[in-house]
Amino acid sequence: MRDLKIKIKRQTEILGLVLAHSGKYLIYDFEEMFGVNDLTIKRDLQELRSFGIDIHSEGKKGINITSKIPTETLKAIIPQYIGIAVNQSSYDQATNLFISKLGPKSISTLTQLQMCIDQNFQVKMLYQKPEEKIVEERILEPHCIFQGDKHWRLLASHKGSIKQFLLNNIKTIEKLEKKFKPISQKQIDEIFGTSFKCWLGNERYTVRLKFLPPWPDRMKPRQLMEFQKVTEEPDGSIIYETVVNSLNEIASWIVSRGEGVVVLEPESLKKLVIKTAKDVINNYK
């Protein structure tokens, strides 16, 4: 397992270096860098090509990538690399909270769910809502496990609606011998594409915000949403536009920014921001 992780990490780093500096590196450079022989590097390039990446060694011209890497390939490579390399030295609060709450049961919960996702089997689980003490039985069609707002979560269909469930609050899981038709990756992408933080809903709200100085310099380089539009104004401000599935999440975020962030639309978001700010002030009266 350790050798496999080392290989995946090395191949991804070779890919990253070639993308950053096309033609700069020879096979010999990577031999020296990673402490392996030339056959290993050649096998690495071959395996990367098997993933649909046109990476080739052209002798003294160095190693180059001759065509654009498909988005789906990037989506497969990046989480894999993060899981192996980045998590070794970073603080994963969601995982730590998950383990703290469930202990060894965290592994059985995670693996049972993922196996049902892979095989498209329904699951029966006992689930306790975060704000309630009642434990309820749920029959779900599990679609994917994801991390959001410091927790591991399950995206699943329940009684015809797509919902999310905190893995920390799952009491028991049972695989049912009943299969279901999974939703497509495109549908999953659309669900997450309008989530400002972790709320997953069917509503869609077009939001326009105005950021006054000094916020424009801070906001222009940032990618808050997958689909967003930023327009610079003559007065030094910027207009930020996006689509979200929850006004509550973005309202709280706007209030937390303080002065200089103005809601242009929708009107319902303006009212919600004002109410949220008043509620915060009332805590100190």
Score class of each variant (00 low, 15 high):
A94R: 02
N96F: 11
I99H: 04
I99Q: 00
I99M: 01
S100V: 02
S100L: 12
K101H: 14
G103I: 02
P104D: 08
K105S: 14
K105E: 04
L110K: 05
L110H: 09
L110G: 04
T111Y: 12
T111N: 13
I117E: 14
Q122Y: 03
V123T: 13
Y127S: 11
Q128P: 04
K129M: 02
K129P: 00
E131W: 14
I134S: 14
V135C: 11
E136F: 11
E137S: 04
E137D: 13
R138P: 08
I139H: 13
L140W: 03
E141W: 03
P142S: 07
H143S: 02
H143A: 11
C144M: 08
F146C: 07
F146G: 10
F146K: 05
F146R: 01
Q147C: 12
Q147Y: 02
K150Q: 15
K150N: 15
W152I: 10
W152T: 07
R153P: 09
A156K: 04
S157R: 14
S157Q: 07
H158N: 08
K159G: 00
K159V: 06
G160H: 06
G160A: 06
I162H: 01
K163L: 06
Q164T: 03
L166G: 11
L166V: 11
L167A: 07
I170Q: 00
T172N: 11
E174Q: 05
K175W: 09
K175Y: 13
E177P: 11
K179A: 10
I183A: 06
Q185E: 14
K186N: 10
Q187C: 01
Q187L: 05
Q187E: 12
I188H: 15
E190L: 10
C198R: 02
W199N: 02
W199T: 00
W199I: 01
G201F: 01
N202M: 09
L209D: 05
L209V: 09
L212K: 00
P213N: 04
P213F: 05
P214Q: 11
P214Y: 05
